[in-house]
Design a protein around this nucleic acid. Structure first.
Lengths: 220, 220
DNA sequence: GTTCGTTTTAAACGGTCGTTAAACTTTGCC
DNA sequence: GGCAAAGTTTAACGACCGTTTAAAACGAAC
C-alpha cells in the first residue's frame, strides 16, 4: 500500500509528476533527465521505475494527468452548449469558446506551475518521439471530430476542407500562444499578457469568428 | 583553401548542414546527435568541429542558412507591395500574403528536403536552448515590426494590443501548419495537403482577413 | 621533390544518460 | 513478535554523448 502523504507535502508520485512536468517544460521530453527530476522531487532514482516503469511511462503519465481532464472539459462544454441549443446550430462564438477556454483556463493555473503547464502544451506540438505522440493522437481526434461536427451543423454551406483547415489554424494559434507565454509578453513589451484569460479569449473569438462566418454566405 | 565540390556531390559543409537539418527535424535540437549527423553526411566527427566549432555552432549555421533568406523575402515582398501602393495603406490581404507566402514556399521545396525544412520551423517555436533561441529573436523582431507597421497603417482604428495578438495568432497558425505537415494530412484523411501552396495561402488569407477587417469599423 | 598550410582522420577523454538487480527498510496483518 | 508484501535505496552496467588532441593525408608553391 502506498504511504500516505505527510499532511502538507504531496506524495511521491505527485512530486515526481510535478518535477517531470517542470523539467519537460524547461528542456523538452528528450532533454529532461530523470536524475534532475528525482532531485527536484526529493526522491530516489529507482522510485521512478517502481511507479512508472520507464522514462516513457513517466512522460505518458505526465501527459495523461493534464490532458485527460482537458479532453473531458472540451466535450463537456460543447455538450452543455448543444444541450441548451436543443438541436439548433450553435453560434461559432460558442464553438470557439468551447475550443479555447479549457486550455486557456488550464494555462492560468497556480503561478508556480503555470509556465510548466503551458509550455508542456507547446512541447507536444513538435514532439518527435512517436511513443509520446501516440498518447494524445487518439483523444485529439475525438475532440477534433466533435468540434468539426458542431461547425458543420452551424455552417452547412462550408466545404469540409475549409473547415478542417480552419480548425487546424485555431489549434495552431492557441498552441503557439500557450507555448511560450513569457516570450510573447516580452516581445510585445507587455501588451500581450496570457494570464488575462478573458482578454485573450475575447481577442481570439473576435479574430476567428468573422473568418468562420464568411463561410456561411457562399460555399468556401 | 576549401576543396571544390566533386560536380554532383555537394561539399562537406553543405552535406553536414543537410544532415543536421534532417536530424533536427526528426529528433529536435537536443535529440539530434553529431554521430548520427556525420554518418549521414559521410564525414568524420571532428570535421563538424573544424567547420562549425561546436554543436551549437552547427545548429546556428543550420538556422541561419534557412531563415536569413526567409527574413529577406518577407521584407522584400512587403516592400514591393508598399512601393506599388505609393504611401497608401495596403489591403490586409496583401500584408497577409507577405507574411505567409515566403514560409509556405520554403515548405514546398524539393520533396526530399521538404519535411526537414518544415519541421525545422516547428522545432524553433518550442526550443528551450537560449543560445538557439537568440539566433532568431532579433530577426523575428525586425520582421514583426515591419508587418505591425503596415497593419497599423491599414487599420488605424485598431488598438495596438489587438493587432499584436492577431499577428501572434497568424504566426502560430502558420507554424503549427508547417510543423508536422504529414500529421495534418493524415488526421484530416488527406483533405489538408500542405504542398498545395496556393490553396493553403488562399485558405489562410480568407480565414484571417475578415478578422482583421473587423477592426477597421470600431476600435478593437 | 620538398615544404608549408589546410583539411581529414583515428582514438580517446570525461561525463551523463536510462536502466536494472539486489539489498535494505518500512508497513500491515496474524 | 514474526512474516510477507510494499516500498525505498545503493551501486553498478553498458551505451551514447560532446569535445579534444595529435597525427596522417592532401594540395599548391617553389
Amino acid at each position: 500500500m502506498p504511504k500516505m502523504p505527510k499532511s502538507s507535502e504531496p506524495d511521491r508520485q505527485t512530486r515526481i509528476l510535478d518535477a517531470a512536468e517542470s523539467a519537460i517544460a524547461e528542456s523538452g521530453f528528450a532533454g529532461a533527465s530523470l536524475r534532475d527530476i528525482v532531485q527536484e522531487a526529493q526522491v530516489n532514482l529507482a522510485t521512478v521505475y517502481y511507479y512508472f516503469g520507464s522514462k516513457v511511462g513517466l512522460m505518458e503519465a505526465v501527459l495523461k494527468r493534464r490532458f485527460g481532464p482537458l479532453r473531458q472539459e472540451h466535450l463537456a462544454m460543447l455538450g452543455k452548449f448543444e444541450a441548451a441549443a436543443r438541436g439548433r446550430p450553435l453560434p461559432v462564438e460558442q464553438i470557439l469558446e468551447a475550443m479555447l477556454l479549457p486550455p486557456l483556463r488550464l494555462a492560468a493555473k497556480a503561478p508556480a506551475k503555470r509556465q510548466a503547464v503551458t509550455r508542456l502544451i507547446g512541447r507536444i506540438v513538435t514532439e518527435p518521439n512517436p511513443q509520446i505522440q501516440k498518447v494524445l493522437t487518439g483523444q485529439r481526434a475525438e475532440v477534433r471530430a466533435a468540434f468539426l461536427r458542431a461547425l458543420q451543423h452551424s455552417l452547412p454551406k462550408a466545404s469540409l476542407p475549409a473547415l478542417l483547415w480552419r480548425v487546424e489554424f485555431v489549434w495552431g494559434a492557441l498552441a503557439f500562444a500557450l507555448c511560450n507565454p513569457g516570450k510573447i509578453e516580452i516581445e510585445t513589451h507587455g501588451a500581450c499578457d496570457l494570464t488575462k484569460t478573458d482578454e485573450v479569449l475575447a481577442e481570439m473569438i473576435h479574430f476567428f469568428s468573422p473568418g468562420f462566418r464568411a463561410l456561411a454566405r457562399n460555399a468556401g
